[in-house]
Amino acid sequence: MTTAVTYAEFAAREAHGVSPAYERLAYAVSRDNKILELLETLPPHKRQPNLLFGVVRFLGGPVEDPAEFHDYTVANWPTIEAEIRVRATQTNEAGRCAVLLPVLAALPQPLALLEVGASAGLCLYPDRYAYRYGQHAIGSGEPVLECAAIGVAPPTVLPEVVWRAGLDLNPLRVTDPADVAWLDALIWPEHTHRRARLRAAASVAAVEPPLLVRGDMVDDLPALAARAPADATLVVFHTSVLYQVSTARREAFAAAVRKLPGHWVSNEDPEVLPYGTLPKPPVGALYNVLALDGTPLAWTRSHGQQITWFG
């Protein structure tokens, strides 16, 4: 797709009904020849809407009004470009734990969790958060992760996690205010509940920061997995990560993770892994596919707000 089409698709499929500000902004960028020209100077994977909008927010620029966004972006492009080139969309949405939980709770316990593309590692604490699936509540404390569960009974117990580690090309630290500020900037403007959730999850993780290793998802995965305790079930998982790498790297990663003991839990766009025939997703939003060891199980919303089971 062209950059213009990418932004129009983002507005229609991702931001519509979820973020009016980003829907307006993405449509405006899709028709803004000057900003499109600037974006074309970047590598293709650096042109994505979330990265551009997040960097402008991080720098204190306007994202509510498209005209103001245009003026700010054009006037400050050298600074914006420099940030885009060294950053990545590392959205660390703890709410995704709510759609992972039905799978994690059903695996042989205890668990050794290894997240690929971990960002600051906030999804490595599914045992420390509270959940609400409709009227069914599990766990206590903050944050409370709310999720609509369709076609699946909510779990009745939290998983037991005895080891947690993350692999990322640029791991972020929950104890570093600048890193948390970047995570905050990646949250869409109207989502105050997600901003509060980020702060609460970061407070949980800061009590016992995870083991985060700077490394490649293929080359460095086996060595980190080998550090997991042998008496726990290894679970390698990832959410909304593989779309950022090439098809060849996705295939190499899938081959590498299948050689490991334990289980592989993926939560990704349906186009990035070869699932074969899938049922039609629910209408009205963009959905990921939750899979266990390569077998698709459910449709999930990107921030963990809904799971629709079909497996």
Rank of each mutant, 00 (worst) to 15 (best):
F69C: 07
E37W: 12
A248W: 05
L114K: 14
D65W: 06
R258F: 12
V157T: 15
H70A: 09
A228M: 11
V218N: 09
W188A: 06
A26D: 02
T79Y: 02
A226P: 00
Y275D: 02
S266K: 12
V152C: 15
E271Y: 11
P229L: 15
V116L: 04
H193A: 15
V213G: 04
R47E: 01
E142R: 15
P44L: 12
T91R: 06
V103H: 03
I80K: 06
L211Y: 09
A298S: 04
V55W: 10
R250H: 09
W182Y: 14
P177I: 07
A120V: 00
R199M: 05
Q109F: 07
V204N: 09
I84F: 01
L167M: 04
K259Y: 09
V180T: 14
T89W: 05
R195K: 14
A252Q: 13
Q135A: 15
F58C: 08
A82C: 07
F53I: 04
L100T: 10
L292G: 07
R195D: 06
F58T: 02
Y22R: 15
G121R: 09
R214H: 08
A228L: 06
A88L: 10
E268K: 01
V245H: 08
A98T: 00
R227F: 12
A256T: 05
S246T: 13
P281C: 00
G166W: 01
E146S: 13
P110F: 08
W309Y: 05
A94P: 00
Q48E: 03
A165E: 13
L104C: 00
G121P: 05
D32W: 04
F253C: 01
T79D: 13
L107D: 03
R301S: 00
P229V: 13
V18W: 11
A82D: 02
A298H: 02
L211A: 13
T91M: 02
V213Y: 06
N92R: 10
Y125W: 06
T79R: 15
G17C: 08
L114H: 00
H70W: 01
V29G: 15
A8C: 14
D231V: 08
V245K: 10
L172E: 12
L107K: 10
Q109Y: 08
L212V: 01
N33M: 11
T308I: 11
L104R: 02
H263F: 10
V152L: 03
L167S: 08
E93G: 09
E64L: 11
E142A: 01
E160Y: 12
R57I: 05
Q90S: 06
